Amino acid sequence: MRFFISYVHDSGEDDRHVDTFYRDLHHDVLMFAGQRSHDTAGFCDTTLSLGQRWSPSLIDALSTAQVFVPLLSPAYFASPACGKEWQIFTSRLARSGRLHGAESSIVPLLWVPMKVPAVAEPYQYREAAFGPGYERAKLRALIRETRNRDEYHAFVQLLASRIVDLSDGDPVVVSSDRPAFDTVRSAFETPALVTAPAAPPVRRRVPRPAVNRDERPILNPNLLPEDPR
């Protein structure tokens, strides 16, 4: 598997835009790689519903794909499922010794204009390399703007060429196991704060009041002297 598209589903218009983008990109990747038109080069599950768990085919693709293409948006970083997909791929990169840098095999795309969170900053790709249309409008608008079809197709070709170059380079380790959805921690979770155990209360000794010897209580009346009367 050459590439895996990771995005947050909305069960609406954006899913249709992503499906269009995936089909165009898949076609161009096959073309640049010299593969047959009926081969499978990538994966994008546009049929997954919100809240639905991963399918076996999704897990297989995520465990074998050589390039990870996340479509970044504020909703993407709020999605536990997307955070888990990011975690699995970056874990594979770490085992391959290619976690950071230009050859990390993560090619993030801005779905909408946004400030990228710290977790994604090491993987930002130079936007100018994908042409002025993407640099100006970002991917969602580029797909929707029918008047800029030439810019859109030029962007897809540049991205496809990039994916083929990365997938033909140093391989990313294939995961031998197939993790279940609930066993993976999202890379976007904020680590829980570890609080130190509360110190035991300090027990202070209160000084006992001094007692006059003549005023001490009589504990044994049999020790009293005989009454002189």
Rank of each mutant, 00 (worst) to 15 (best):
P122H: 09
F68Q: 00
H100Q: 13
P179Y: 08
S57L: 15
Y134F: 02
F188I: 07
A118T: 14
D165F: 00
L159I: 04
A61T: 01
V112N: 01
I59Q: 07
R136N: 01
P70S: 06
R162F: 00
Q157M: 11
Y152L: 11
A120R: 07
G51N: 12
D60G: 13
R178G: 08
G97H: 05
L109H: 07
P108Q: 02
L110P: 03
G97K: 07
R126K: 08
P171V: 06
G97M: 05
G169C: 04
A75N: 13
R147Q: 13
S79A: 03
S176R: 10
W111F: 07
G83D: 08
Q157S: 15
L72T: 09
R149E: 10
L139D: 10
H153E: 15
A61G: 02
E151W: 00
A78C: 09
R144S: 15
A137K: 05
Y123I: 11
A187M: 01
E121H: 09
P108N: 02
K84H: 10
A141Q: 13
A137S: 11
R98W: 03
R95M: 12
A187T: 00
V119H: 08
I59D: 10
E151N: 07
S161R: 14
S49F: 05
L72D: 08
V112T: 15
I106W: 10
S161L: 10
L166F: 04
G133R: 01
V156C: 03
P56A: 13
G83R: 05
V156L: 02
L71R: 00
P108Y: 01
A160M: 09
E135C: 05
L62S: 03
A120I: 04
F188Q: 03
M114T: 00
T190N: 03
V156N: 00
G131Q: 03
F130V: 04
G131T: 05
D150T: 01
R92T: 12
G101N: 03
A154L: 01
A102N: 04
V112D: 03
F130N: 05
V173E: 15
Y76D: 06
F181R: 12
A78Y: 02
P113G: 09
G169E: 08
A137H: 04
V184R: 10
G83S: 07
R185H: 11
G169M: 02
R53L: 12
R136H: 01
E189W: 11
E151M: 08
S104G: 07
W54Q: 12
T183C: 04
F68C: 05
L93G: 02
S104F: 02
Q157W: 02
P117L: 13
E127H: 09
A75D: 15
L166C: 05
Y76F: 15
L109T: 04
A120S: 12
P191H: 07
Q157E: 14
S176A: 09
A187I: 05
A180C: 04
L142K: 00
V119E: 15
A118D: 15
E135L: 00
V164C: 13
D168H: 09
L166T: 02
A94H: 08
S57Y: 06
A118G: 13
R95E: 14
M114R: 06
L166E: 12
C82A: 01
I88Q: 10
D170P: 10
V67L: 06
L72G: 05
E151Y: 00
R95T: 11
D150Q: 00
Y76V: 03
R136T: 06
V69Y: 01
L58W: 09
D60L: 13
Y125L: 13
H153Y: 15
S96N: 08
R98K: 14
